[in-house]
Design a protein around this nucleic acid. Structure first.
Lengths: 154, 154
DNA sequence: AGATTAAAGGTCAATAAAGGTCAGGTGAAA
DNA sequence: TTTCACCTGACCTTTATTGACCTTTAATCT
C-alpha cells in the first residue's frame, strides 16, 4: 500500500475515533510516516477536498496546525453538488465523484452494491463522450442518482 | 502451451485459491513470466472480459495495481446482459431499458432503490446528448450496471 | 515598541513509479 | 496465402514522492 494511502487511512481513522474534526501538526505527521512534509499537503489536496466532504484549515508559525473537518452530508451537498446545478458548464471530474461516492458509502448512505454500480457508471470508460461534455454528463448522472435516493417512497 | 495460456492459468489458479478477487502488479507478473508488461494487458483483454466472467480494475502511478474480480452471472442477469451486448452498436431506447429494469426488479434481482436510481439515470432527461449517441450511451451504462451487480466481492 | 529569530505551514517543479495503447512482427493453421 | 492468435517494444498518461524555496506567525531580544 502506498504512502499516500496509508496517510489517508490514518487521518480517516483518527476522524472516526475522535469526532468530526481533528487538529494535528504537519511536521509531526510527516515524521510519523518518515516522509517530507509536503507529502502531507499532497494527501490533503487529493483526498480531503470539499467535494469529498472535507475541509482543511491551517495556521502557520509557532503553534501552527492543520485542522481537518469532516463535513456533514448536507454541507457537502450544499457546497459542491448544488454548485453544479447552478453552474451547468462546469461538470464534475471522475476523481471528484468517486470521492463523493466513497464518502456516501463510508457514511452508509448507499450500499456497497450501489457504490459499485454508480462508480462503474460514472467512469470515463462507460461515459465515452468528448471531454467538456463528459464531465457535465457525469454531474447530471450523479444528481439524478442522488435525487432518486431522496425519494420518500423508498 | 503458450505464454498467454500459462499466464491465464496462473491468474485463474490464484483466484480459486485466494477468493473472489486478487490484486497484483503488472510489472511483477511480467517479471515472473519473463515477458514485456504489455503481454499482461493482452492476456487480460482477451481472457478476462466481463462476458468471460471477469472484471479488471487498475490504478497507475506509485502503488499501482491490477485487481481481477470474478463475476457470478445468474441466469436472469446473464440473459439481460446478452441482450445489451447484442445492441451495443445500435444502442437501446429508454422504453427497452425501462422494461429490463422492471423485470429485474420484479424478479428481485435489484432493489427498489437500485431500480429508481437506474431508471432516473438512463432517462433521456439525464442523458442529454444527441440521438444516435444517447441510445448507445444508455446501453453502455446499463451494461456497466449489470456487470457491477454481478461482482462476487459484494 | 520595534527588530530579529525561530517555528510552523505552503507552493511548485522535477522526477519516479506505476499501468495503458498501439502499430507492427512472427508463425502456424485454414 | 490469408488469417488469427500471440508477442514485442516504443511511446503515453496517471499518480506519487521529493526537495528547494517562500510566507506567515509567535517568541525573544534589545
Amino acid at each position: 500500500m502506498s504512502l499516500s494511502r496509508r496517510i489517508e487511512e490514518y487521518i480517516k481513522r483518527l476522524l472516526t475515533e475522535t469526532g468530526d474534526a481533528i487538529e494535528l501538526q504537519r511536521s509531526h505527521l510527516a515524521n510519523t510516516f518518515q516522509c517530507v512534509p509536503s507529502q502531507i499537503n499532497y494527501v490533503l489536496s487529493t483526498r480531503f477536498t470539499p467535494s469529498q466532504g472535507y475541509l482543511v484549515e491551517s495556521k502557520r508559525g509557532g503553534g501552527g496546525y492543520l485542522r481537518i473537518i469532516k463535513l456533514s452530508w448536507d454541507e457537502t451537498m450544499a457546497s459542491e453538488a448544488k454548485q453544479v446545478l447552478q453552474n451547468e458548464n462546469t461538470g464534475l471530474e471522475q476523481w471528484e465523484v468517486e470521492g463523493m461516492l466513497k464518502r456516501l458509502y463510508e457514511e452508509a448512505r448507499i450500499t456497497k452494491r450501489e457504490y459499485f454500480i454508480l462508480k462503474s457508471i460514472i467512469s470515463r470508460d462507460t461515459l465515452q463522450v468528448e471531454l467538456p461534455q463528459r464531465d457535465i454528463l457525469r454531474a447530471r448522472i450523479i444528481q439524478a442518482a442522488l435525487t432518486a435516493l431522496n425519494r420518500s417512497d423508498l
